[in-house]
Amino acid sequence: MLDDRARMEAAKKEKVEQILAEFQLQEEDLKKVMRRMQKEMDRGLRLETHEEASVKMLPTYVRSTPEGSEVGDFLSLDLGGTNFRVMLVKVGEGEEGQWSVKTKHQMYSIPEDAMTGTAEMLFDYISECISDFLDKHQMKHKKLPLGFTFSFPVRHEDIDKGILLNWTKGFKASGAEGNNVVGLLRDAIKRRGDFEMDVVAMVNDTVATMISCYYEDHQCEVGMIVGTGCNACYMEEMQNVELVEGDEGRMCVNTEWGAFGDSGELDEFLLEYDRLVDESSANPGQQLYEKLIGGKYMGELVRLVLLRLVDENLLFHGEASEQLRTRGAFETRFVSQVESDTGDRKQIYNILSTLGLRPSTTDCDIVRRACESVSTRAAHMCSAGLAGVINRMRESRSEDVMRITVGVDGSVYKLHPSFKERFHASVRRLTPSCEITFIESEEGSGRGAALVSAVACKKACMLGQ
């Protein structure tokens, strides 16, 4: 009897593995994704193909990295998701002549009506938060230079001027797309009239992360975010950046690689679950690469896999709870928690219980395998993109072996128990001629924006502006 049951459990697990095998990517698959990513990057950089390229390769006008001589107080704003952060950054000489960066910050959550109302409502709310922060720190009387981390696709015309191309991540505030974001912020500050600010720089969160990590390690020339969304930036040779005049030196390019796949480059790798996630998203047909990796989508992918296993009578005796059938019910943090389970399955059992399920031991094991399959594919897909960037940098610099540091931020990278190990191992397999160091950014977005502002202020002083 026991043997029969054991055989049935083994057969069930084997069927589960057959279904989950769809998520496995072979090294040849990853090399294919990497080569296609490089081709799209090239198209994004070139003037004649930029418009139709899915990977936009947006110039950021960040050319210099901090040298350690900029000092002063800077205000930093960070808008990239449902939370908005205001930070005071003091850049100065530390002990023994070292450079020191001290920060104080406060988080504000953005109400739904500000995210989806008008641009005026959104930026009025942001300036209200700045006003509140300055009151708390008794700094209303000071006109501070301000660095703005704005983590949406922007076409820069200068370091302090950028046109919002399109909202992502659930934002829909009308009247912002096609307009200068810094102008919208300046107008809102003017409307309030109770404080003055000098907006000197606007950067993407990947750029802010790279600059913040450069402060720790001067070989950091790539910034990457794996959180709600997924994106990367890197220092490109100016001669390859056709959208900006000049051939000397390097400029940081914001790849906006989340949109890779929007022209069909990933079609052969998309599964039924991916198509369902895409169809029910706020932007169907867009940001397809990001939807395979980002935390906004990972939990939902797992939920759809679990429903398939229920329908195949391989999980929960073929019956799903009402909660499990509800879109968004299986949160991405559950994926991390399930994979963090120590082996007694308590954590998995508790999560499934909150979803109205009474799982068996085998159910718990199957749910864990589903989570591992989805998150491992995410790590491997992400590795193909980064390997594409790094191999490109090595080739354009004609280096036999390139040493490089990548600064990384984002909740999936930082909080998932195995993502970074799987990701690092896969990147290294795909970049055999590179020695890569990964560092995690601390308060990256805010500190990085302030350091970019410090560079901009120093330049302005040198130019006598």
Rank of each mutant, 00 (worst) to 15 (best):
E279C: 15
V338E: 00
G246T: 08
D73Q: 03
M251A: 02
L185N: 04
E440S: 11
E290G: 06
D198M: 03
E245C: 10
G72L: 01
I225Q: 03
R46T: 08
R36I: 07
Q18H: 15
L58I: 11
D158M: 05
F330Q: 01
D135Q: 15
C382G: 12
K102N: 00
H137P: 01
G464K: 04
H317Q: 12
A379N: 03
S353D: 08
G227I: 03
V71A: 13
V412E: 01
M381C: 11
A208Q: 02
K161I: 07
S263D: 14
A384N: 01
C230Y: 05
D135V: 13
A201R: 08
G81V: 10
N83D: 04
M115L: 14
C382S: 11
R403N: 07
D135S: 11
E331I: 10
R327T: 13
S418M: 08
R422V: 15
L352H: 00
F260N: 01
V406A: 05
E128F: 10
M210K: 06
E248A: 09
V55G: 01
V91H: 08
P66E: 06
L301D: 01
L122G: 09
V199T: 15
L430M: 05
A282G: 11
V62H: 12
S396I: 12
L430Q: 03
N283Y: 11
E372R: 07
Y289Q: 07
V455C: 12
M41T: 06
S373Y: 04
H105A: 05
V452R: 04
E435F: 11
G356I: 04
T116E: 14
T149R: 06
A176R: 06
T405C: 12
S321E: 10
R85M: 14
G410S: 03
A425E: 07
G264D: 09
D363W: 01
C364P: 01
E157N: 15
A329Y: 04
L20G: 00
C233K: 00
G223E: 06
R429K: 14
L288I: 15
D344V: 03
S212A: 05
C371H: 01
G258H: 01
I225W: 13
G162W: 04
E216G: 09
N240A: 09
A259W: 14
M57P: 02
K32M: 06
A384V: 12
L45Q: 01
R191M: 14
M393H: 00
E245V: 07
G147I: 12
D247N: 06
T431Q: 07
M197P: 12
A454W: 06
D160I: 10
T65C: 13
F419N: 01
A282E: 06
R327D: 15
E372P: 00
S426E: 13
F334Q: 08
I351R: 06
D160P: 03
M115R: 14
P59T: 06
G94T: 06
K142H: 10
V16M: 13
E52A: 06
V412Q: 07
N350A: 00
S100L: 10
E128G: 08
R377S: 00
T209S: 04
E372W: 12
E248H: 10
G294T: 08
V71I: 07
D363C: 08
G295S: 14
R345L: 12
L47D: 15
G80N: 09
E70K: 15
V241H: 10
E322S: 13
Y125A: 06
T49A: 04
G170C: 14
S131P: 01
R46Q: 05
K172W: 11
E40I: 02
G356A: 05
N254I: 11
E435A: 09
D158R: 07
L79G: 11
T103M: 05
D78Q: 12
G295I: 11
V374P: 00
G343R: 04
D132I: 13
K31I: 15
S64G: 14
I439A: 11
Y214T: 05
E237L: 09
N166W: 07
V71P: 03
T149G: 08
F74V: 12
Q138R: 12
K420F: 01
C457T: 15
C434Q: 05
R191Q: 04
M37L: 09
H156P: 11
D409P: 03
R46G: 13
D341V: 05
L79E: 06
S127W: 07
E319K: 06
K15H: 04
I110N: 00
E95T: 07
M139D: 04
V374S: 00
K56G: 11
P153E: 06
E9G: 15
A10W: 07
I130R: 00
A188Y: 04
T326V: 14
C129P: 04
S360W: 04
K104C: 03
K31Q: 10
S127R: 03
H105Q: 04
T354F: 03
D3C: 05
I163M: 14
E443N: 07
V101P: 04
E322Y: 04
M34P: 00
K296V: 12
G193K: 08
S64D: 14
V427Q: 03
V302E: 01
V222G: 01
D113E: 13
A450I: 05
E319I: 14
V101F: 06
E177N: 10
K190S: 12
A370R: 00
I126W: 02
M202D: 08
R308I: 03
G356F: 03
R392Y: 03
C213V: 12
V335S: 03
Q219R: 08
D205Q: 04
I404D: 01
K296A: 13
S174L: 11
R422Q: 06
K136A: 06
Y413R: 02
R377K: 01
A232T: 12
M462G: 12
L2K: 09
K459T: 10
M197K: 08
K161R: 13
L134N: 07
P145M: 06
T405A: 08
G249M: 02
G343Q: 10
L301V: 13
K90Q: 12
E421Q: 09
R43T: 03
M87Y: 14
M34C: 05
E421K: 09
I225G: 02
G299T: 02
V62G: 03
P417Q: 07
W99E: 05
M34E: 03
M34D: 03
D217W: 01
A53I: 01
Q219N: 13
S69W: 13
V389R: 01
V305L: 11
G183P: 11
L271Y: 01
L415I: 06
C213Q: 00
E248G: 06
M37F: 06
H380W: 12
G92P: 02
K459A: 09
H424Q: 05
A53L: 00
L20N: 00
F23P: 00
L266E: 08
V305I: 15
K143Q: 13
L352Q: 00
